[in-house]
Design a protein around this nucleic acid. Sequence first.
DNA 1: TTGTCTGCAAAAACTTTGCACAAAT
DNA 2: ATTTGTGCAAAGTTTTTGCAGACAA
Lengths: 153, 153
Amino acid sequence: MKSSSTLDVKMVNGLFAEFELVCRRIGLRLTHQRREIYRLLLNAGDHPSAETLYERLRQEMPTISLDTVYRNLHTMETHDLIARVPTGKSQARFEAKRGTHHHPMCSRCGEITDIQWEIFDNSELPDYASFWGQVTDKQATLTGVCKKCLQKK
Amino acid sequence: MKSSSTLDVKMVNGLFAEFELVCRRIGLRLTHQRREIYRLLLNAGDHPSAETLYERLRQEMPTISLDTVYRNLHTMETHDLIARVPTGKSQARFEAKRGTHHHPMCSRCGEITDIQWEIFDNSELPDYASFWGQVTDKQATLTGVCKKCLQKK
DNA sequence: TTGTCTGCAAAAACTTTGCACAAAT
DNA sequence: ATTTGTGCAAAGTTTTTGCAGACAA
């Protein structure tokens, strides 16, 4: 079984190179901060919040500021390099964009994972969708309790 | 085609009666404010935010406070009477709990609608789900542009 | 009467913005 | 040289909390 956290180095490098190309194409400067924010997000398997990302970035770049993190997340989202995970929570969670996947979320610990679901990906939208408008993306959110939390009691 | 905004009076009354039963069973008092918050949410087809709900409530109950709205939304969510819609936005959106349904969201105007999708409801979870943990709910989020916004240009 | 709930006020949590200097192209 | 990005500080949004009096049971 291939979990999406097993993302090999080659693929990550490829996505990172693509990120740099996109930045150059649209005139975004490749600052040290921007690169690191994207790199961490690309390697993170846990859909971190801005605050979490900030704490991690400070390990290697102690002078980075939280507002730079927010500003960059916003810019990258605008250019479709990253995405927010749809959750019901007030704190946003982010991921670098890759192939289609879905999100199991633990209602106890808040963990968000990636999951593949090809049958869903290949399924037709309900008829009503075309009446509603033009759908460009569909994704599933699974809610429940993760294995770690189940074992805690 | 049956849109979920066409929810007949009988069904709404039934759900409201059930709400009162649940409150009594678990010892929640049926205050004027609590009833109205639930009633408005039950009749709202648009998954309002706390703020939006507050504005509507003030029309009929000018002295209600925003923190009462928040407190009640929290309490009702805890008791599974209402739910938050998974969005990527920082402002939470709410709905009264009813049957299974899914959410098309307009990326232009922020509109959130309900949609039925029985094929999805009846489909099996991917194998990996049982490895992840115990899934209690699955729901689909469709992203796109609603018909009204498409017509605006 | 008893314990919960409300409104008010204040605070906390999360995110955005203006500005002057720094860095990227 | 030019223009965008950063860090700092301040402000804006959204949500939560403490408390004294009000209300439901």
